[in-house]
Design a protein around this nucleic acid. Structure first.
Length: 833
RNA sequence: GCCGAAGUGGCGGAACUGGCAGACGCGCCGGACUCAAAAUCCGGUGGGGCUCACCCCCCGUGUGGGUUCGAUUCCCACCUUCGGCACCA
């Protein structure tokens, strides 16, 4: 018998798969007529080609591959493509350092990753490979920008934005983590700049509503998105500034507390601040307050524990509930970005307002009584934010506060003083970046015609060559005169091109659609084809994309649905988020120097061993710790499989397919046969139902262990050899999704071909049940004996057997059995007194 | 502070709808094979106690309560770790 030599075997089969294009799946001839219930789109998040694949990628792509291979062998037409999220800062930053072109660096990296993926043996349809930085791809990214622009979903606006000084570009809200840049952790600065946005807020309600269409999305991902969108129901209420004849709307979630509003607040950035304070004598302190708020870094401003500051404007607003004038202040705890940038302050029922009122000595008027407490008794020491009965609120007194809120909205509406309203935390998606390596925004500015979209026929707007990639607060392509100066598409006169590029999250918001029709040069994809393959049946990736990528892709899909380009509202029906791999107690990272390189392990043990180990480590959704010696166990196991199967091949004869039905079966023989069928059932369920790859693998290990123990005795006669042959073939067949190279080789040696195309084994229902089992006998819940019982034994038989146990007698002697609990197949429990 | 997930041997982890806690693997200990080693194969391995002949007893799934014949599993309170959000009116 030759030794298990993964290097040789893996190279051999990778070559076969590549030459035969074994996993290439053509589009259906007539997509409209194709039966979608037989297809399965298995997708892993595409890699960002910043260098080479790390362990997280290996886990991601191995999981996807196990699923793809398993589903293919279960008769589904599996769609399993791969590409590269190739635009982005790492390549550009490397270009700045080395002077090499980002496109060249990207090509080197994608080639690298392509090879790594081949060496892992993943069953990818390589004919659909794409890179988002190819003009053939980003042409369509630009096309979608134009479609968004046409519909008013892409707009340019001046707004306070997050500027990362290190990356020298603006960032979307979603890319700011605790006030720091998501990429480089530099503190972001507020700036006011004209930028391009996608109107994702228009889709806030549908993004929330369509969670219903998602199956098996992790609850926490949905919760994170829900919190991010941050829907609040309440009311818009208009406060009047009589002296200036101004109406200022506020948003509140607590219309029930309207009678308790004793002051009014504006955000420092609010348009009306200047107008209000003019001529009151309070100009200077207010101006200082506004200026200092503008300078304050965003993360400092967002600290709840900070002491409240603010300035009186010298003006009063009328509370529409009781027509009382209340003072107007400016304070930086009011955010311009949320609601209307102005609030009614109710110190009795909002802790922040309470703190402000205490500091500025403003009346605290309670309008919701605390249940149990005497109404209005004594001074409050903090705001009461709970529910209760209305007081001090005119004709609403005595109502439960929630009900009063609805009544007050109704009354406000009838008086045209307000209405029911909804507010979202979500803000529009800022997509322009002042950097080079991205898709140019296809817009031209003309002095006469204004902002003009580039006509579709002129796409792509190709990223120009530049000499210097360094960012200087504007995109490096702004320095390219040939690029910037152009003719206006509308009037033909001189005009300038937009020089910002798009956020790379735009690129990855639709790549899964392009896979379905990747070489189409007339349109981004064919409608019938995309509707056949989509939606993705199983998406797999890291939880770090819970908000960013997954929300943007959902938004994009909904817009395309509205345009009529796709026939589905959600892109990813099922989502699985994998846990991270830790090493030495921390996330792997270059800076910590605790990176485990997959290539080294592929070289040392082979890809099959690495694939097996990474799934055997633990439940795939949890974070797990890499153990250096753990992988050797997986290698040893594959060696054990190798020796077992080869020995069986040597000592038994090839048989016609099918499970053996030995007649003169020994106990070992039928025991092993039953175990084999149970293993088939366990592995099938483990893969298909709950991604329980770790226990599926351990089930096969158990089977192999048992086969080793009875092997010698079974080799002695013909029926025993038939059983062993069946066991060997089953083990190979079940392991194939996990360790495809080894299994392809052993399958061939067993005299068959192309295991990746063979039907998945089915268990024999009749052999799943064991004929005997160990009955646990308890006295007062403690295990006191175990008895071998026949599977068909009745309750009465079980009780009788348990009672006649000598051991049990020792515990029940002289006592009274008050209760017998009999669970067939498990236990008998005597309760004694 | 709020929301969510998780706490099980020396380690990674198993345990279906409440029913034998510790499957499987790592590590460790012992044996076989060998001139020897590696590899391989076989056995043992939660803690404590015992007239430790492996028979048996007690304890044990973060902590403290509860429900139940029976709880890693269900309920209540708390502790710890990790993730998300955090002046959002």
């Amino acid at each position: 018998m030759d030794r298990y030599n993964p290097a040789q075997i893996e190279a051999k089969w990778q070559q076969v798969w590549k030459q035969q294009g074994s996993f290439t799946i053509p589009n259906p001839e007539v997509a409209e007529a194709a039966e979608p219930s037989r297809k399965s789109y298995v997708l892993e998040m595409l890699p960002y080609p910043s260098g080479t694949l790390h362990m997280g990628h290996v886990k991601n792509y191995t999981m996807g591959d196990v699923l793809a291979r398993f589903r293919a062998r279960n008769g589904l037409t599996v769609f399993h493509p791969m590409g590269y999220d190739a635009f982005g800062l790492p390549a550009e930053n490397a270009a700045i350092k080395t002077g090499a072109h980002p496109a060249d660096l990207t090509r080197i990296n994608t080639d690298n990753i392509n090879q790594q993926l081949h060496r892992l043996g993943v069953s990818i349809d390589w004919s659909r490979e794409l890179a988002t930085s190819d003009p053939e791809y980003y042409k369509w990214t630009q096309y979608f920008f134009l479609k968004f622009f046409e519909r008013g979903l892409a707009y340019r606006g001046e707004a306070p934005v997050n500027w990362c000084p290190s990356c020298a570009t603006v960032l979307a809200n979603e890319q700011v983590i605790q006030g720091n840049c998501e990429r480089c952790a530099t503190a972001v600065e507020p700036r006011s700049l004209a930028q391009w946005f996608f109107r994702i807020t228009d889709y806030a309600e549908r993004l929330l509503h369509d969670f219903d269409l998602l199956k098996s999305w992790p609850e926490r991902v949905i919760t994170m998105q829900r919190n991010w969108i941050g829907r609040s129901g309440g009311a818009e209420v208009v406060f009047r500034v009589a002296e200036l004849d101004l109406d200022v709307p506020v948003f509140t979630t607590r219309p029930d507390t309207l009678f308790g509003a004793t002051f009014f607040l504006l955000a420092p950035e609010h348009d009306l601040v200047q107008k209000l304070v003019e001529g009151t004598g309070y100009e200077n302190p207010v101006r200082d307050c506004v200026a200092s708020a503008r300078l304050k870094p965003l993360q400092d401003r967002a600290v709840a524990e900070r002491e409240k500051t603010g300035e009186f404007t010298g003006r009063y607003a009328i509370n529409p509930a009781n027509n009382e004038p209340i003072p107007i202040y400016v304070s930086d705890y009011v955010l311009m970005e949320y609601g209307t940038g102005a609030i009614m302050a109710v110190p009795a029922h909002d802790q922040r307002d309470f703190e402000f009122a205490v500091k500025f000595d403003i009346e605290v008027r309670q309008v919701v009584a605390m249940p149990g407490a005497e109404a209005g008794a004594g001074a409050m020491t903090s705001a009461f934010e709970g529910d209760g009965v209305m007081i001090n609120s005119g004709r609403f007194d005595g109502m439960p506060n929630r009900e009063a809120g609805r009544a007050i909205i109704e009354w406000l509406s009838s008086e045209h003083l307000g209405r029911a309203a909804v507010s979202y935390r979500l803000r529009d998606w800022l997509i322009s970046r002042q950097r080079y390596w991205g898709a140019p925004i296809p817009i031209v500015y003309c002095d006469r015609c204004g902002t003009v979209p580039v006509p579709e026929a002129e796409l792509p707007v190709v990223l120009p060559e530049v000499k210097d990639y360094a960012p200087r607060g504007r995109s490096p392509i702004a320095a390219s005169e040939d690029f910037v100066n152009t003719a206006c598409p509308a009037c033909g006169g001189g005009a300038r091109r937009e020089t910002d590029t798009m956020d790379t999250f735009v690129d990855s918001s639709w790549y899964f659609l392009r896979y379905t029709d990747p070489h189409n040069d007339r349109e981004p994809f064919d409608r019938a084809i995309v509707n056949y393959w989509m939606p993705v049946d199983q998406y797999i990736g890291g939880v770090e994309h819970a908000i960013l990528h997954l929300m943007y892709a959902r938004f994009f899909t909904k817009v395309l649905y509205d345009i009529g380009m796709v026939g589905f509202k959600e892109p990813f029906t099922n989502l699985f988020t994998q846990g991270m791999i830790y090493y030495k107690g921390a996330k792997m990272s270059k800076s910590k120097g605790n990176v485990v390189n997959p290539d080294e392990h592929v070289e040392k043990f082979g890809a099959d061993t690495l694939r097996l180990y990474i799934l055997f480590m633990g439940p795939p959704e949890l974070d797990v710790e890499w153990q250096d010696q753990g992988i050797e166990g997986s290698f040893r196991f594959l060696g054990r499989v190798w020796r077992f199967v080869n020995e069986v091949i040597e000592k038994t004869e090839a048989l016609t397919a099918g499970a053996p039905e030995p007649e003169g079966a020994s106990r070992e023989m039928s025991g092993l046969l039953g175990k084999t069928h149970r293993t088939i059932a366990r592995v099938s369920a483990g893969i298909s139902e709950r991604f329980r790859f770790n226990t599926a693998i351990s089930a096969v290990m158990e089977l192999v262990n048992e086969a080793y123990l009875v092997k010698e005795s079974l080799l002695g006669d013909e029926e025993g050899r038939a059983v062993l042959r069946f066991v060997a073939e089953t083990v190979v067949s079940l392991l194939d999704p996990f360790t495809p190279h080894l299994c392809a080789e052993l399958w061939q040696r067993l005299g068959h071909k192309d295991i990746w195309r063979q039907p998945w084994p089915q268990p024999d229902e009749r052999r799943l049940q064991e004929t005997t089992y160990e009955l646990v006998v308890q006295v007062n819940g403690k295990v006191r004996d175990r008895l071998q019982m026949h599977a068909s034994a009745s309750k009465e038989e079980l009780a009788a057997a348990a009672r006649s146990s000598r051991r049990i007698a020792g515990y029940t002697e002289g006592k009274q059995i008050v209760k017998e609990i009999i669970v067939p197949g498990r236990l008998v429990n005597f309760v004694v007194k």
